[in-house]
Amino acid sequence: MKRLVITVGNEMMGDDGAGPLLARLLEKNHIPGWEVIDGGTAPENYFHRVRDMKPEVVVVVDACEMNLEAGSVRLISENDIADEFILSTHRLPLSFFISALKELVPKVYFVGIQPSIVAFGLPVSSEIRQAVEMVYDKLKTGKLDFPHLE
């Protein structure tokens, strides 16, 4: 089964760098069966690669404001994204990005990581580093059993 992780974020913006941090971790410590695309702040620019890869599963990982404790990780439903409950710092609305992915891929999951501070020039916080490692470990086991956003 072809599986793909698409990370979203800007590593120059503090905890918004959660996605790129996960991409680097996956590139350095490859997990068999998973490919990774660091989508940066414009993941829609990689739709052509997704189409060419034809993955069966895509997991999108991004730091997003969910009004939770810093470092909290949640599976976010399409309804929550569509209701604009989720705030993102990126060019294209997440709802559009996820909908477009679902036209190409049978299973799409969106994993949100609650940031602590998103500000230019700050490093990724320790809470987000721990959350990224947890996401990596879950990908390694193949069980995306994160709590759902409520």
Rank of each mutant, 00 (worst) to 15 (best):
G14R: 03
N67H: 14
P55N: 11
G33R: 07
G142Q: 03
P123G: 07
L68I: 08
T89G: 09
I113V: 12
T7W: 11
P55H: 10
A23T: 11
I37T: 04
T141R: 09
A82S: 12
L75I: 10
G40T: 12
D83G: 09
V58D: 01
L122D: 02
L22S: 01
T41K: 08
A82H: 09
V57D: 04
K28C: 06
R24A: 14
G33D: 07
G17Y: 06
E11K: 12
L25C: 04
A131E: 00
F85I: 13
L4W: 01
D145R: 02
I81M: 15
L149C: 06
V73S: 01
I37A: 03
P55Y: 11
V73D: 02
N45G: 06
M12E: 14
K28P: 03
M66V: 14
M12S: 13
A70Q: 05
D137I: 02
M53D: 06
V73N: 02
R3C: 02
P93V: 08
L92D: 02
M53C: 11
R91A: 10
N67T: 09
D38L: 13
V132K: 01
A42V: 15
P147T: 05
A119E: 15
V60C: 05
A70L: 06
I98Q: 10
I37S: 03
M1H: 11
E44H: 13
P147D: 10
G121N: 14
E150C: 04
W34I: 03
V8F: 10
S72I: 01
L75W: 05
W34M: 03
G39H: 00
K140P: 01
L144E: 10
V132D: 01
A100I: 06
L22V: 02
P106I: 01
F47G: 00
I31C: 05
V61L: 03
R74F: 04
R74V: 08
M12Q: 12
I81R: 07
K138E: 09
E44W: 09
I76R: 13
T7K: 14
F110Q: 12
I113D: 02
I6A: 08
L87C: 08
A42H: 13
R51K: 14
A63H: 01
L94R: 03
E78I: 10
V57C: 05
G33S: 07
M53Y: 11
R91C: 06
M1C: 07
D137Q: 13
G19E: 00
D137V: 02
E27M: 10
L101Q: 00
R49C: 05
D52L: 13
R74N: 01
S99D: 12
V135W: 00
A18Q: 04
H30K: 15
H48P: 04
S95M: 09
G142N: 04
N10G: 11
V124P: 03
E103P: 05
F120V: 10
L22P: 00
D145T: 03
